[in-house]
Design a protein around this nucleic acid. Structure first.
Length: 575
RNA sequence: GCGCCCGUAGCUCAGUUGGAUAGAGCAGCGGUUUCCUAAACCGUUGGUCAGGGGUUCAAGUCCCUUCGGGCGCACCA
């Protein structure tokens, strides 16, 4: 891994040269605001959260700011007038990459980058290479992301797969954006469900020996337990018992859960998702964490006893009813265990905790946040995101899922059908809190209608052009060996501008917990590349021009690689 | 009944922590073309941002409300 951002040993002039143009602009504008303060035109405490945006329409410049609107009120002047004063005060030495500055009739200040900007961006991307996109936006904030966390009582389904895609990409983008991100999977290997699973497993196992037992009412009816029972029998998992009926339920639970957990780990690993920690609920109980956290809640006065149970007064925090922590049978509830787990996360030093939950848990958000508040953790230190359900389609027709028969669409089947790349990409096509229609057929198309193909092909296309260049004896050189001034087309400047924005897109995706923004970005970049390719000859008679254009393709390739890599999607050289 | 998510072009969806004339793909319409890998490319039609009210210099975006969808409301996990 290369060092993040701008390395400290680069001389000062080079740092200014390489510094993001938006950063240049922000600082120059900050200076302008300071000047206003020096002159006493606005109060010292006044702060403006102005934007430096890339306007949609090119005629509005390469960058624009709304600062004049924000200051207009305090200065009691029209925005356009304010813009004029800002322009006068604007110190151009602080923003050498800026050429022309314009005041729009509306009052916007529009900035046009000079050609040097294009060169700077190209050099920066070439230098940073696979570290391009890394920033220090997150300031090293210690963040934990917990996701998937499916019960080890069955195979992973498609919603888990979606959560895996979202959580993993988010972790990757947060790391790139300078957060200290940690990925964790909570293993629910204790409690009622674990026991029910063991009982169900036991029934399936005994059936193989001719004992006709019934699976408990709320047990697990899926066929995978029959397969597991067969496996257990054939491999003599319970060899130490002569009589199958004498095998305790606990043994079934333990063996079954470990087997399922192993299976989940393998599936996720194959999916390209790797966790920093698999946290076991049993370890929580081993340290008596639930009762310890209950004690804290008691001391803070949020607990009461009623009807033989122990309750958390969550209504104090806006919940519609109070919640049970310890049942009348003396067992702790899932809720209390989960409170203990989340409290433990903070005890481990995480400053920010992000949970990604399935749609069936969204009713629990309020009470968990209430519990964290009750424990004294800052209001926004816990963020809970919901990954919504996935509708599997086949050529527009809904794929029938019969949960009653225990048939669920498993992650394994999905990956088997469409592959890892398509699955991971499709799951990040939409915001995670909206329902996703996943068309299995479209995901397999080898055409532009398939967004994964479209983006991956952009990468393959660059590789293909490089192969052609080699064939024709045109070398792929570094920026210092070509004349970047030959990249004089508007289309080329536009592509470079998009490339320049990549670190911001990553940082924004991380800040907003919305990894799909990067997917949108990559689709946009791919579009630009395809258009450019279709319109202009990369390798032509003008060898010098060809060399320059190959450099442009090279840096496009770098960004495509960095983006796809963070998404867990491969970058094929040929398709 | 209560809570959360959603409602943007014919369809599927974007819309950058409130910013300029709301965008893309598909479908439709019109045209070009066999060129470094594609039945491809280019252009174009189409929206009262579900309806109403409010805050603001500025609202698809924030607040209230109505309608219409989805999901969740266990001493299960």
């Amino acid at each position: 891994m290369k060092p993040l951002g701008i390395s400290p040993w680069i001389p000062l002039y080079a740092r200014i040269l390489l510094m993001d143009i938006k950063e240049q602009l922000s600082q120059a504008l900050d200076k302008v605001v300071d000047d206003f303060k020096q002159e006493g035109l606005i109060s010292q405490e006044q702060k403006y959260k102005f934007n430096v945006d890339i306007p949609r329409n090119r005629q509005f410049g390469d960058f624009s700011t709304n600062l004049s609107f924000l200051m207009a009120k305090d200065l009691k002047k029209a925005p356009k007038e304010v813009a004029s004063i800002i322009m006068d005060k604007f110190n151009r030495e602080l923003a050498p990459a800026i050429g022309k500055i314009e005041i729009a009739p509306s009052g916007y200040l529009n900035f046009f980058a000079n050609q040097g900007f294009v060169h700077d961006v190209i050099k920066k991307i070439e230098t940073q290479d696979e570290a391009y996109g890394h920033t220090s936006a997150g300031n090293g904030l210690k963040v934990q992301i917990e996701f998937v966390s499916a019960n080890p009582t069955g195979p992973l389904n498609v919603v888990s797969a979606r959560a895996a895609s979202v959580g993993d990409a988010m972790g990757n983008f947060m790391k790139a954006a300078g957060y200290d991100a940690f990925k964790e999977f909570y293993v629910n290997d204790a409690g009622v469900q674990a026991r029910l699973f063991g009982e169900s497993f036991r029934v399936r196992y005994l059936q193989l020996f001719g004992f006709e037992n019934e699976i408990p009412e709320n047990g697990y009816h899926g066929e995978y337990l029959i397969e597991l029972a067969l496996l257990a029998k054939n491999n003599s998992y319970f060899a130490e018992y002569d009589d199958p009926q004498s095998i305790p339920v606990e043994s079934f639970s333990k063996v079954g859960l470990e087997w399922m957990l192993q299976k989940q780990k393998e599936d996720l690993s194959q999916f390209g998702v790797h966790f920093d920690c698999w946290f076991r609920e049993t370890s929580l109980h081993a340290d008596n964490k639930p009762l310890k956290v209950l004690e804290i809640l008691k001391q803070r006065g949020h607990v009461f006893e009623s009807e033989g149970a122990v309750w958390f007064r969550s209504t104090d925090f806006g919940d519609e009813k109070d919640r049970v922590l310890v049942k009348t049978d003396g067992n702790t509830t899932y809720f209390l265990n989960d409170i203990a787990y989340h409290h433990d996360k903070f005890e481990r030093g995480f400053q920010k905790v992000i949970d990604i939950w399935g749609p069936d848990h969204h009713g629990h958000i309020l009470r968990m946040k209430a519990a964290m508040k009750a424990l004294g953790h800052p209001e926004d230190s816990l963020e809970i995101l919901i990954v919504q359900q996935v509708n599997l389609l086949r050529k527009g027709e809904k794929v029938k899922m019969s949960k009653r028969a225990g048939q669920i669409e498993t992650m394994e089947d999905l990956v088997k059908e469409v592959g890892v790349d398509a699955a991971r990409f499709f799951f990040l096509l939409r915001g995670s809190d909206s329902h996703l229609d996943f068309d299995l057929e479209v995901a397999k198309y080898q055409t532009n209608d398939n967004p994964v193909f479209y983006v991956q092909y952009a990468h393959a296309r660059v590789c293909s052009v490089f192969a052609k260049a080699a064939e024709k004896g045109v070398p792929i050189l570094s920026t210092s060996q070509v004349d970047l001034n030959r990249l004089a087309l508007v289309e080329e400047a536009e592509i470079v501008k998009i490339l320049a924005n990549y670190p911001d897109v990553v940082a924004d995706a991380a800040r907003a917990y919305e990894p799909h923004r990067v997917v949108r970005y990559l689709m946009d970049l791919a579009t630009r590349l395809h258009q450019y390719y279709n319109q202009f000859q990369i390798i032509g008679d003008d060898v010098e021009l060809s060399k320059s254009r190959l450099v442009l393709l090279k840096i496009v390739q770098i960004v495509l690689q960095n983006g796809l890599n963070s998404l867990g999607v491969s970058q094929p050289e040929r398709m």
